[in-house]
């Protein structure tokens, strides 16, 4: 079983804490000139998303978590699972609702996502930073109104609802930043 010692700690390192896979967000070395050294870390639990503070005595070691980020193509949803495929080797993975979580409202078939695997099963899914989606429902556009800065809600093909400018129409394809959930432009 692989382990990491505190002197190998750095942000991004994947470790097991209380049985859960976690990633080190921040690591600070703390040591009085005369006395005990510590690593003060912020870790994010990859299952729950919670961020915790931990203090390790220097020299302690912790079990490595077998966690890997892999680019995959989103295939389809069967009502229970979201199916992904690694383009290089056609391996398929099925992710449940907790793993897909907030990403579900941005997933469009064929788009490339980053799927985080833990012990070879999907732990979380990150959608592309930008997605292009068709508006399936919104109030009619106001022709020529590109300046007033007003917005209206629009429902997208994936079910996500975003605020769009008044001149945008049903049937338009728009570009959205999935990190903020904001409209970027017409595609």
């Amino acid at each position: 079983m692989a382990t990491y010692s505190t002197n190998e700690f750095k942000s991004g390192l994947k470790i097991l804490m209380d049985g859960d896979p976690c990633t080190i967000v921040e690591n600070e070395f703390v040591k009085p000139g005369k006395g005990q050294a510590f690593s003060r870390v912020k870790i994010r639990n990859l299952k729950t998303g919670r961020v915790l503070d931990k203090t390790f005595k220097s020299g302690e070691s912790v079990e490595a978590a077998d966690v890997m980020d892999t680019e995959m193509q989103y295939l389809y949803n069967d009502g229970e699972f979201w199916h992904f495929m690694v383009p290089d080797n056609f391996e398929q993975y099925a992710a449940g609702e907790t793993a897909v979580a907030d990403a579900m409202k941005w997933l469009k078939e064929q788009d490339t996502c980053v799927v985080t695997l833990w012990n070879n099963s999907p732990l979380s899914v990150a959608p592309p930073n930008f997605v292009e989606l068709t508006i399936t429902q919104c109030d009619p556009g106001i022709r020529g109104d590109t300046a007033t800065g007003g917005t209206k809600p629009a429902t997208l093909e994936t079910g996500a609802v975003v605020k769009v400018p008044l001149f945008v129409n049903e049937g338009d394809v728009i570009r959205v930043d999935t990190r903020s959930g904001e409209y970027v432009s017409r595609a």
């Binding site: 703390v30 040591k31 009085p32 006395g35 005990q36 510590f38 003060r40 915790l52 503070d53 931990k54 203090t55 390790f56 005595k57 020299g59 302690e60 912790v62």
Partner: peptide
């Protein structure tokens, strides 16, 4: 005080922890 410590410390280790953090 919110310090969740991994590893065993002796008395001076605890004092160093409180002093530096």
């Amino acid at each position: 005080l919110g310090l969740d410590v991994q590893g065993s410390l002796d008395r001076d280790g605890w004092l160093d922890l409180l002093m530096s953090m």
